Amino acid sequence: MKIAAIQMVSSPDAGRNLARACELMAQAAAGGAEAVALPEYFCLMGLQDRDKLAIAERDLAVAPDAAAPLQRALASAARELGVWVLGGTLPIACEGAAAGERVRNSVCVYAPDGQRAARYDKIHLFRFNNGREAYDEGQVLERGEQPVTVDLRARDGRTWRTGLSVCYDLRFPELFRAMSFKPGQPPCDLIAVPAAFTYTTGEAHWELLLRARAVENQAYVIAPAQGGRHENGRRTWGHSLIIDPWGQVLACLPEGEGVVMAELDAERLAAVRSQLPALQHRLL
């Protein structure tokens, strides 16, 4: 199964970002990708954090008559291109007390028929302050609660169990263990990590952490990222990666918009798990 990680340098203009995301998804599909993954905040890198509130959408699974142009566009792209779409993240409106003041940072996954197959809400919210840069996602985001996996069915009939995560989640290996060791389910074959890592933290830790998650879970990793200087002044690290279960980097785009692709190889996955059966040796 060929997969594609899309790298973007998103702007404060949601319409422009969506149009560019659709162009890049079409490019990936034309190159033979069966699954395409967008980065975190693909739809908006606002001038301030609260800009997310203005484009927040109600979940179509809860409010099927809602306008929800971002969700509808991702579903249409999946159906028209005939691919799985792992929709980066988009702001889903909170219900109840947090309505209007908080959003969920959500990954929506769409099957090739355009039907939504899964939704994951980012659990771990990023906070960082080194005296020069300061971020606190908890000011606007409401965290999710549950790990989520989804089965991506390839055209050859093979199913790839995929664990969903977002950016800062990468620093919490227990999340990936929880996804890979759900009772009654096989371990994840693929882990998706859409991200908008800062240049500072990305330079230090991005590839290191991604390769660690691949090796310790003996799974492929796809990590589509934001990568460049944004109109709001922020610089993101980029380096969208696809990594194999042995920790080998199969594809990388250091900076700028574009697409990286690689093949998921079931025989390679089985060989790594057979030769070093670490997943079977887990005791805690």
Rank of each mutant, 00 (worst) to 15 (best):
M1D: 03
K2I: 09
M8H: 03
V9R: 05
S11T: 15
N17P: 09
A29M: 05
G32D: 03
E34V: 03
A35H: 00
A37S: 12
P39R: 01
E40S: 13
M45K: 06
Q48D: 12
Q48E: 15
D49Q: 14
A56N: 01
R58D: 15
R58L: 11
R58F: 06
D59A: 13
A66I: 07
A66P: 04
A67N: 09
R72C: 09
A73K: 10
L74F: 15
L81A: 08
G82D: 01
G82Y: 10
V83M: 07
W84R: 06
W84V: 02
V85C: 09
L90F: 11
L90Q: 09
I92S: 02
R104E: 10
N105G: 04
S106A: 15
V107N: 02
Y110E: 01
D113G: 13
K122E: 14
I123F: 00
I123G: 03
L125F: 12
R127L: 04
G131N: 10
E137C: 13
G138I: 00
L141A: 10
G144M: 04
A154V: 00
A154G: 13
R155F: 06
G157F: 12
G163K: 01
D169P: 05
F172C: 01
F172A: 05
P173E: 13
E174H: 11
L175H: 11
L175G: 08
S180I: 07
K182E: 14
P187Y: 06
V193L: 12
A195P: 04
F197A: 11
Y199D: 12
Y199I: 03
E203V: 09
W206C: 12
W206V: 05
E207P: 00
L210E: 03
L210A: 13
R211S: 10
R213Y: 00
E216R: 03
A219C: 14
V221G: 09
V221F: 11
A223F: 04
R229Q: 15
N232F: 02
G233L: 08
T236E: 12
W237T: 00
L241W: 00
I242Y: 02
E257I: 08
V259C: 07
A262Q: 11
E263D: 15
A266Y: 00
V272R: 07
V272E: 06
R273N: 06
S274R: 15
A278K: 09
L279H: 05
R282E: 07
